[in-house]
Design a protein around this nucleic acid. Structure first.
Length: 721
DNA sequence: GTAGGGTTAG
């Protein structure tokens, strides 16, 4: 009787220990190492498995020191304990420590060897892995699989196949691995052959084959296979959705996303990026909000969408929120935020992000450096931009493009051409973007001859077919120079249809040179291509009004109303007295000091006229009486901002203004003269580029320390909210 | 499902 009780008691204790050990592992897997430890501590009788479980738990939770410490304290060890230590170090990317354990352990089995081979494979030390693999006293299907995986990882698929053929016994895992290897190299037929000959397929092998087709652009085959696979899991769904997004097939991606049974984080991340970049920003945000388990990529996907779609403030807000939710700013979110600093010309915030990149050692990267260069240039700090550019080596074409485009945007045509020539002399082949940069530099600075030569060289020297952006530059260049007929010839010469940007360039040039006939042609084309763009309506209406064709004016008005075309309100801002002041055209939202601003403009008026200023009503957007039209010109936001700068900023300090739209032609000539008669330097950044005014010229920019004083982003947030 | 080695998405 006693004996029976004792046995029962032992069984009970044994069962209890199993339950507790299992709990330890479960907690550890969930990342709750403290709970795991509590269960461990509370066990009345721990066995070697309890110790092994808690040690593995520490390594899983990236606490290798604690794991080693527990190992050192163990009352007894078995081979599982030693193997656990090896794989623990491997998981923590400490292959050297793993090897020390491997060399020190009293006995090894096939698992010890395989774990060690795996350790080398993970670190990319495939030579070491191979050496060890061939020394193994015995191999099993797992060991072969690990080695084959290492070779595949290195792109050595044929060698992997040789090993695969040598294996005495193959199972579904190694077959799937080999299939993936072929898929990664785009060798789909060989993958498919293995797949078809598999004696037993599982969901993983199906998914591997589906994703193999999908990743190689064979989406329709992938989809067919996906439809017929006997069982799907979240990974299968995610794989095909991500591929649809990657190949720009957002509709199909969304349709599948809607019906997938379990939505995973990677699928949501891809969908946010896909539909967001496709313009459905609100829907993307909905997916973002509904996703409970966000990861780094979720946040950066949404931030990127906001950045790409021009929602700067929302992006900054989310970037802030991301950190409130304890996500460290990651590489891709920092890049998005840098682009936003560039578009807001917020140098100080940009510098902060730069510092953050340096701290996290993410700055030594060709991609980051290019974005940094763009940021510094758009914020007006050429010196810093050039410094980063000069220091980085080797530069890729994107980095060259960053600096060339940057110079172009500041009207520094000579510098842009110089860098372009340097690039070519170093043997870097320019791409489409390079030519857009160089041609626009030529256009802004009136270098028609150089521009034409470079345009011609695209085809003759680089075998590159000019695209619509290049034609737009040429039309702009010829148009600015007043060679409107040549610009029109350029358009007619195009093989493809001219787009809205090209006709817009022609229209702008016609307006500049008062060629009403061609302007009408361009505006009518533009009307068809962009019915929501208010520009051509206004211009046509002005043309008709100037000819007294009032019936045409009225019908334009009508179609504008029926299509609900609205002119997006112009808005300029500048910093004075440590505050950002915003100006809108018209009188709907006057600045508190509106009266004083008007007085300044009134005072300036005779001085400007004397300096040769003729108000140009053709830029005004209403077909009102001429007198009134000229009056409303004075209300353009950029002029108000300049006047306010004159009022508030001390003499000698440059007046820096930003505008959300392109500066109007009248304001351009007026501000040029304001700079002259007041002796002030004025830097205006509009939606398109920078304008530097000094001594009555569109000046060459000096080095500008800061385009925008501190705190802009937060002021903007306040202004909007 | 008590502890140690391998496959599919990112």
């Amino acid at each position: 009787m006693h004996r029976l009780l004792l046995v029962q008691c032992r069984n009970y204790c044994h069962t209890q220990a199993i339950a507790s050990n299992s709990q330890i592992s479960q907690f550890a897997r969930l990342g709750q190492i403290q709970n795991a430890r509590r269960v461990f501590d509370e066990m009345p009788k721990k066995n070697v498995t309890s110790w092994n479980s808690i040690i593995t738990g520490y390594f899983q939770n990236h606490l290798p020191n604690e794991g080693q410490c527990m190992f050192d304290q163990m009352p007894e060890r078995n081979i599982v304990s030693w193997n656990g230590l090896i794989s623990g170090y491997v998981k923590n990317r400490m292959v050297k420590e793993a090897r020390e354990v491997f060399d020190k352990m009293p006995q090894r089995n096939v698992i010890s060897w395989t774990a060690m081979v795996r350790g080398y494979v993970e670190e990319g030390f495939v030579e070491e892995a191979e050496a060890l693999f061939w020394q193994m006293p015995e191999k099993n299907v797992v060991s072969w699989t690990v080695m084959i995986g290492g070779l595949i990882q290195e792109g050595r698929v044929d060698e992997a196949r040789r090993l695969y053929d040598m294996m005495p016994v193959k199972d579904v895992v190694v077959r799937t691995n080999m299939i993936c290897g072929y898929c990664q190299e785009g060798r789909l037929d060989e993958a498919r052959d293995l797949f078809d000959r598999m004696p037993k397929k599982n969901v993983v092998s199906w998914t591997a084959m589906v994703s193999g087709y999908a990743q190689n652009g064979k989406l329709d085959i992938a989809r067919k296979l996906f439809e017929v696979m006997p069982e799907k899991n979240e990974i299968s769904w995610t794989a095909i959705i991500i591929s649809y997004v990657q190949y720009g097939r957002f509709e199909e991606a969304w349709k599948l996303f809607e019906v997938m049974p379990v939505r995973t984080t990677p699928a949501c991340n891809a969908i946010i990026l896909g539909i967001g970049q496709n313009g459905e920003v609100a829907k993307a945000r909905m997916v973002f909000d509904l996703l409970k388990e966000k990861d780094d990529a979720t946040w950066s996907a949404m931030i990127k969408v906001y950045e790409r779609k021009g929602y700067e403030l929302e992006a900054l807000d989310l970037f802030h929120q991301m950190q409130v939710d304890r996500f460290r700013p990651n590489f891709s979110s920092l890049i998005s935020i840098l682009s936003i600093c560039a578009s807001l010309a917020s140098l100080n915030y940009g510098r902060e992000i730069h510092a953050q990149l340096i701290r996290t050692e993410c700055d030594d990267d060709v991609y980051v450096s290019s974005v940094l260069i763009t940021m510094y240039i758009k914020c007006g700090d050429f010196v810093k931009a050039k410094l980063i550019f000069d220091r980085f080596s080797p530069k890729d074409v994107v980095m060259w493009n960053s600096i060339i485009t940057g110079y172009a945007q500041h009207g520094l045509g000579d510098e842009a051409l110089e860098v372009f020539r340097e690039m070519c002399s170093l043997g870097i082949t320019p791409d489409e973007v390079t030519f857009v940069g160089v041609l626009s530099a030529c256009s802004y600075t009136g270098k028609v001859k150089e521009g034409q030569d470079i345009f011609d060289s695209m085809n003759s020297k680089y075998q590159m077919e000019p695209g619509s952006a290049h034609y737009a530059c040429m039309v702009d260049m010829l148009g600015r120079a007043g060679r409107l007929n040549e610009a029109m010839d350029m358009i007619n010469k195009m093989t493809a249809e001219a787009d809205a940007i090209i006709w817009g360039s022609l229209m702008g040039a016609c307006r500049m040179h008062m060629n009403l006939d061609l302007a009408e042609v361009a505006a009518k084309k533009l009307l068809q291509l962009e019915p929501q763009n208010s520009g051509p309506y206004v211009l046509l209406s002005n043309i008709y009004a100037s000819k007294g064709k009032w019936a045409d004016v009225a019908s334009l008005r009508k179609s504008m109303q029926s299509r609900e075309v609205v002119k997006s309100p112009g808005c300029s801002w500048l910093e004075a007295d440590k505050e950002v002041h915003m100006f809108t055209g018209g009188e709907s939202m006057p600045h508190p000091e509106h009266e004083s601003i008007l007085k300044i403009l009134e005072k300036l008026s005779p001085m400007l006229r004397e300096a040769g200023y003729i108000p140009d009503g053709s830029f005004a957007l209403h077909d009102v009486e001429e007198e009134e039209k000229l009056h409303s010109l004075n209300y353009h936001s950029e002029k108000l901002a300049v006047a306010y700068g004159l009022l508030k900023l001390p003499q000698g300090m440059p007046i820096r203004i930003m505008k959300n739209l392109r500066v109007c032609g009248d304001c351009h000539s007026a501000i040029k003269l304001i700079a002259k008669v007041t002796g002030r330097e004025i830097i205006l950044r509009d939606a398109n580029r920078f304008h530097h005014f000094k001594d009555g010229h569109q000046a060459r920019p000096l080095i500008i320390a800061s385009m925008q004083p501190s705190g802009l982003e937060f002021h903007l947030l306040e202004l909007v909210s």
